[in-house]
């Protein structure tokens, strides 16, 4: 059996005050697979993505667990080696395309800098590669886009640019951090379709962070449901929607608005379910002892 693209084992992270924000999280993303990471805001799903990419805020500390990227234990690498490995094998599609591009740099160099400066490609090769990717994300006037500053492009265009840049270096794993949340509803669908299409064509594994079960159903093969930093259920996407095992998952699915009958389906997660979750978390917390006292 080949190694998983990403294998997170028993990962716990704490804030400075000792509060646990990730509770012994384990999840794996197989090569070429899309795993959705779903949960409410504050559940820690973005935190997992950031931990994998080595960009956790300085207030969050990993206290136990391992993260293996294609079999390499990220925690055991020297900072420089880890940085280079992450730069070469992973990419991030960020949440907000408006803030994820440097306002004072032209698009072109922002898209090619990883290829040239981290991977050591020639400028020509990087440029050709970027143009190919811009074509794949259906940008028809690459010359203008590459010369532009971010503020000269629309939000949808910027997200296309960021998607193209993410796929350009053929990473093995992409972390997509709610990539459609900041966009207009009409643009959301196009962008989602684009990510799905590029993912299929390039065979890239994606850790897809979202709070939207509709998105989960459309794009992923596997799902991990996260609550308060704890994975409460994981399953094949189809199985999860067909027969959700955990009460919280059932409540989440029930709370998802449907276009056919938006008001009827809009109900909050049941109090009893939340109480059950609180008990579950408290029990886990009782059992957990931070390593090194």
């Amino acid at each position: 059996m080949s190694a998983a693209c990403l294998d997170i084992r028993n990962l716990s992270a704490v804030l400075a005050n000792g509060q646990r924000v990730l509770r012994s999280v384990s999840l794996a993303v197989q090569p070429g697979e899309v795993r959705a990471l779903v949960g409410e805001s504050g559940a820690g799903k973005t935190m997992i993505g950031k931990a994998v990419l080595g960009v956790l805020p300085s207030s969050v500390h990993i206290v136990e667990g391992e993260m293996l990227l294609e079999g390499e234990d990220l925690g055991r690498l020297q900072p420089k080696a880890r940085r280079t490995l992450i730069g070469a094998r992973t990419a991030l599609i960020p949440q907000d395309p408006l803030t994820a591009l440097n306002p004072s740099r032209r698009i072109g160099p922002q898209m090619t800098d990883r290829l040239v400066r981290i991977l050591g490609w020639s400028g020509q090769r990087a440029d050709a590669r970027i143009r190919q990717l811009l074509d794949e994300v259906q940008i028809r006037d690459p010359d203008r886009v590459l010369r532009s500053y971010p503020h000269e492009l629309s939000g949808g265009m910027r997200q296309r640019v960021l998607i193209a840049a993410a796929f350009a270096a053929e990473p093995r794993l992409i972390v997509a951090d709610e990539p459609t949340t900041a966009l207009d509803v009409t643009v959301q669908k196009q962008i989602l379709r684009l990510i799905a299409q590029l993912q299929r064509e390039h065979g890239t594994a994606i850790l897809f962070v979202t709070h939207d079960l509709g998105v989960v159903a459309k794009i992923s093969q596997k799902v991990s449901v996260l609550y308060a930093g704890k994975v409460v259920e994981e399953a094949d996407t189809a199985a999860l929607f067909a027969a959700p095992q955990h009460a919280y998952t059932r409540a989440l699915i029930a709370a998802t608005p449907r276009y056919t009958d938006p008001l009827a389906s809009l109900k909050p997660v049941d109090e009893a379910v939340l109480a059950g979750l609180a008990a579950e978390i408290a029990a886990a917390e009782q059992a957990w002892r931070p390593p090194h006292g």
Binding site: K50, L53, G54, V55, P57, K80, R83, T84, I86, G87, A88, T90, A91, L92, P94, Q95, D96, T99, A100, L101, N102, P103, S104, R105, Q110, D113, R114, R117, I118, L162
Partner: peptide
């Protein structure tokens, strides 16, 4: 240095010094 495009540059593999000089300093 807390902004998204700086985080993205770190993910690309740039060192903290490179990130400061290339992405952050001008802004």
């Amino acid at each position: 240095l807390d902004l998204d495009y700086v985080v993205l540059a770190r993910v690309k593999g740039f060192s903290e010094t490179q990130v400061i000089l290339r992405e952050a300093l001008k802004n």
